[in-house]
Design a protein around this nucleic acid. Structure first.
Lengths: 142, 142
DNA sequence: TATTGTTATACTCTATAACTATA
DNA sequence: TATAGTTATAGAGTATAACAATA
């Protein structure tokens, strides 16, 4: 049921994002860049557990939208330092709002007490499984 | 967290299946053919919500393993009636055992009471979302 | 030599549409 | 004409490996 509901929730979230021209992987990268500004591309790849070559594509997309900047690090000119632009910060707020609305609507069938109990149990599992909060396993290389 | 854990559970289950040369989509089809013997291919496609052309590939694979038979229906010779072979029934028992072991190991971090509470909450969500029990949304066409 | 970011390429999965055989 | 099953094909997403610039 967990797998089934997780996939269903993912599809519903993707649909909500799609209305705004977005897709889940980009939303995840935006979340990371918002919560940890100043990462470089290699670090993003490490946190997400995804190949660096895949990160390039995500960042190309976000940069084309004007949501991030890639700045050459002066002390090590191989490195790109990543930052959200003001437009990017704005975009993140929209994504966060979509996520919140999605969570609420997905759990409509539960009472508030049940919702909070579910959150508690899932938190326990996330911790027990050693998952990084907010990082979807779908980024992981096989 | 639901999406995250669902994906993680799916990956863990895939890994467990892989040790026996299996993949999740085939396990799901086996489950369906076991619980509803005598379906035809179109009906399988309908239940799973997947294109009939995709079902063909799954069944080709299962037939090559000797786990299912496709029998032409006498009253309508366009139709293939699907059945598990004895080897297929045996294979299903293995898959069910893997699934059970997987569920247990995935929820190791919870007490028995928490596990049953989680089951209860997830059941509610499955019902509220109108999901077909045992059918992974990943089969669904976009 | 090693590392960061990038590009090229090949592979898997999937949906769509065309096809056949039956009805 | 319509339907069940099949095949062909094209697109998306991904990983791997090769590459250029810098350390």
């Amino acid at each position: 049921m967990l797998t089934q509901l997780g996939a269903d929730a993912g599809i519903a979230f993707a649909r909500a994002l799609d209305e705004h021209g977005l897709v889940p992987p980009l939303a995840g990268v935006m979340r990371l860049l918002h919560s940890q500004p100043g990462l470089n591309q290699q670090q993003v790849a490490d946190v997400l557990g995804t190949p660096a070559s895949r990160v390039v594509g995500f960042l190309d997309d976000l940069a084309a939208r004007g949501w991030i900047t890639r700045t050459r690090d002066d002390t090590d000119r191989r490195v790109n330092v990543l930052q959200l632009t003001p437009a990017g910060a704005k975009a993140w707020e929209l994504i966060a709002a979509i996520a919140q609305r999605h969570e609420k609507s997905f759990t409509e069938g539960l009472t508030e007490a049940e919702r909070s109990k579910l959150r508690e149990l899932l938190s326990k599992l996330v911790a027990a499984r050693g998952l990084t909060p907010g990082v979807h396993p779908g980024y992981r290389s096989r």
